[in-house]
Design a protein around this nucleic acid. Structure first.
Lengths: 363, 363
DNA sequence: ATTGTTTAATTGTCTATACAATAATACAAA
DNA sequence: TTTGTATTATTGTATAGACAATTAAACAAT
C-alpha cells in the first residue's frame, strides 16, 4: 500500500478509502481482523494518530468495529442486509374496493419477512400520487408497490420514472401501464370477463347489458373480454345496452345509468364492471320492483370479501386479491435483493363463484 | 465549566456532553458560534486534540458544523423538525370493520402534515402486536396510534410500556386500556348504546335481544348502556335473550347464537353489537322467513360505510371513525411537537342514523 | 471601482509520545 | 478442577507541538 504524501488528499483519507475498498472488494472479509494500528503504522509510515483517524471514520461509517486488545474487524452484515426495509404501498383508497384485501396480502408477506409498509392513498389523482411518491423517496423506501392511478399512462410513467431515477424498484399491482418496463402482478381480466359472459350465454342470455368505466385498464380489458365472448357466440354487440363511462365510479351517475338501462330495454342480464356496481344495480332494480334473479340476472366482478355475506348472493368472478398482494411483495423483495432479470409478469387466475344471481333462460 | 479529571468518564466525553447539553438547553443557539478550540483549551485546561475529539463527535452527531477560519457553529434545524416523521398505526385487521375508515382518517391527517404511516395488522393477537411494536421501534417511528388488542389489559399495558420506555408517544384509538396514562380518541359507547336502546323502547319495543362480544371494551360499554337504558325504562333485564360472547367475532358461532335467539323467543327487536353482526342477523332471519322490520326490528352499531348502500337499510349508531382517525393523528402530532401536558381524552359524538330496519309497535 | 496582496484567526492534518483499560492466555495456587 | 494472578497485545485516552489550508477583512495597486 502506498500513501501519496504529495497528494493534496489528506493521508488519513487516502488510508480510509484504501480500507473501504478492500472491504468492498472482499479482500478484508466479514468478521475478519484487519491490521493493527502498529502494523498499519509500519506499512504506511504514518503516525498512529493518523491511522486512528482513518479507522475511526470507517467505524463511524459502519464498516469496522473494534475490540480492545483484540483488534479491528470488518462488520458482519452488508449494512443493508439486516437493516429492516420499508416498502411504499400506493393504493387509490384504503377504504374502497379491494384495497383493504390487497393491503393485507402485502402486509402479511411483508411481516413474514420483517419488512414494514408505508401506506398512501392516491385517490386516483396524479397530484396526490406525486406528493406521496416524493414522500416515499424522502423516507428512503427500498421499493414501491403501486396501483397505477386512473390518470393518463403518460403521468403514470412519470411517477414510475421518479422511482427508477433513484434506483427504487417498483411493482405494479392490479392495473398495468402499457409498455412500462416493470414487474407487475395482476389477473387476466380479459379472460375472466370472457368466461363470465360465456357463462351468461350458456345460461341462455342473449341481451346482456354491461356497465363499467373505461378509465381503468382492468375494466377496459373486461369490456374487451365481454365483446369477444359475444362475438364468439354470434351475438351482436348492441351499444344501446352498454354503459362505458369514462370517469371514476360516482354512485349518483351510475344510478342514473342503471335506471336508464333497466327502463328502456328488454335485457335479461347485466354484467357489472365490478361488485360495487353490481350492488348498485341490485338496489336500483329492487326499487323498480325488479327481482334478482327472477326478473333480471346479474353478475359482478371482484368477489369482494363482503360479497359472501351480502344478501344478494352475487355470482361473480373471484379475484385472488390477497394473493396478488403477496405476490407483488415477493416481486419487490426479489428486486431489493438484487434481482436484475427481465421484468416479471405474474398473472393470477380468477375463477367464477356461482351464487344465486343468475337465472337460466330456456329459449 | 469543570472537567473532572479524576472521573472515569473520558474527558473528551465530558466535554461533548457539556456542549450538547448547552445546545439542547438553548444556551448555545442555532447558528451561533461556540468557543474556539483555543478558548476551550483555556477554559478547560485540556489539550487541543482532546477538545477536537469532543467537537468532532458533536459534528458527527449532527449538533455542530465547522468553518475554517470562522469557527464552530450550532446546526440550524433541531434535527427532528425538518425530518419527516413516520407514525406507526396498529389496527386489528385493515380489511374488517371500521379499520379502513380509521386508517384513511389517520392517513389524510398525516399527509396534510407531510407525515407518513406504517400500517400493521395485529389480528388482535398479543404476539403479532408485540412483533409489530418491536418493528416500529426499530424503524424509529416518532409516534404510534394503537387500537388495543382483545388481549388482557395487562398485555396491552406491556405493549404501551415498550413504547414509553423509548419515549415514543402513543395514542389509543377507539378502544381504551383502563388506568393507562395515555391520550386516546374514542366515542362514548355507553351513551350511544343507551340512546339506541331508548330509541327502540320509544318505538314500543320491550323484549329487545342483544348480541355482542364482551371481549372488547367498546362492546362491553355498549352492553352497559343497553342495560342502563332498560333499567331506566323499567324493563327487566332478561338474560335468556342476551348473547354476550367472550371470544372474537366468528361467523359460524354467531349464526348459531342468532338462530337460537330467533327461534326460542318472542323478541320484537335485536340490538346487534356492531353492524357486521346486524347483517348476520338479517341473513339468518331471512333464511328463517322472518322479514326486517316487519317481523323483527334490528339495530346495529358503527354505521360502516357499506351500510348506506346495503339493501338492509339498517338503523344504526353512526360512529365518526374517519374523524377519530384524524383526531388521533392530531393528538400524536401534538406529543411529537413536545406537548407534555396531562393525557388528553377526545370523546367524539355518535349519532343515530334512522333508516328502515325498525318498526313501531303499538301496544 | 475593481483587482490583487497581505494578515490573522481558525480549523484541518499530522507527528511523537505516554499511560490507561481491556481481555485472551498462560501459569500458579488452592 | 477451580480460582486467582501475571503477562501481554491491542485499543482507548490524553498531551504538546508543528505546519497546512481556508477565508474574512484590511490594505495596496491599478
Amino acid at each position: 500500500m502506498i500513501i501519496d504524501r504529495n497528494s493534496p488528499i489528506p493521508q488519513y483519507f487516502q488510508l480510509q478509502t484504501w480500507i473501504i475498498e478492500h472491504i468492498e472488494q472482499g479482500v478484508f472479509k466479514p468478521d475478519e481482523k484487519i491490521p493493527t494500528e502498529e502494523e498499519f503504522s509500519q506499512m504506511t509510515g504514518l503516525a498512529r494518530a493518523t491511522i486512528r483517524q482513518a479507522i475511526q471514520n470507517c467505524v463511524n461509517m459502519g464498516y469496522l468495529y473494534r475490540k480492545r486488545r483484540l483488534g479491528t474487524f470488518v462488520i458482519k452484515q452488508n449494512l443493508n442486509v439486516n437493516k429492516k426495509t420499508i416498502i411504499g404501498v400506493m393504493v387509490p383508497d384504503i377504504r374502497t374496493g379491494y384495497a383493504p384485501e390487497l393491503a393485507r396480502g402485502i402486509g402479511d408477506e411483508a411481516a413474514a419477512n420483517k419488512h414494514s409498509i408505508i401506506l398512501c392513498n392516491t385517490d386516483d389523482f396524479y397530484i396526490k400520487t406525486n406528493f406521496h411518491a416524493d414522500n416515499l423517496i424522502e423516507h428512503n423506501v427500498s421499493g414501491v408497490i403501486y396501483v397505477p392511478t386512473a390518470a393518463s399512462d403518460e403521468k403514470n410513467r412519470m411517477i414510475l420514472e421518479k422511482f427508477t431515477r433513484k434506483n427504487i424498484p417498483v411493482v405494479l399491482a392490479d392495473r398495468v401501464i402499457p409498455d412500462a418496463n416493470v414487474d407487475y402482478a395482476t389477473t387476466d381480466n380479459f379472460q375472466g370477463a370472457y368466461e363470465l359472459t360465456k357463462y351468461l350465454v350458456n345460461k341462455g342470455h342473449k341481451r346482456i347489458a354491461v356497465i363499467l368505466s373505461t378509465l381503468f385498464s382492468t375494466e377496459r380489458q373486461r369490456f374487451d373480454g365481454y365483446k369477444q365472448a359475444l362475438s364468439d357466440s354470434n351475438i351482436p354487440f348492441d351499444p344501446s345496452i352498454v354503459v362505458a363511462d369514462q370517469g371514476p365510479f360516482l354512485e349518483n351517475f351510475y344510478i342514473k345509468y342503471v335506471k336508464k338501462l333497466l327502463d328502456d330495454n328488454n335485457i335479461t342480464a347485466v354484467f357489472a364492471g365490478h361488485d360495487r356496481i353490481a350492488y348498485l344495480v341490485y338496489t336500483v332494480a329492487r326499487q323498480s320492483g325488479l327481482r334478482i334473479p327472477e326478473d333480471i340476472s346479474l353478475v359482478g366482478y371482484d368477489d369482494l370479501p363482503s360479497s359472501s355475506s351480502h344478501p344478494v348472493r352475487l355470482t361473480t368472478m373471484h379475484q385472488p386479491i390477497y394473493e396478488m398482494g403477496k405476490q407483488s411483495m415477493k416481486l419487490i423483495m426479489s428486486r431489493i435483493n438484487g434481482d436484475v432479470s427481465e421484468p416479471q409478469k405474474v398473472i393470477l387466475k380468477s375463477y367464477l363463484v356461482e351464487r344465486f344471481s343468475v337465472r337460466t333462460i330456456h329459449n
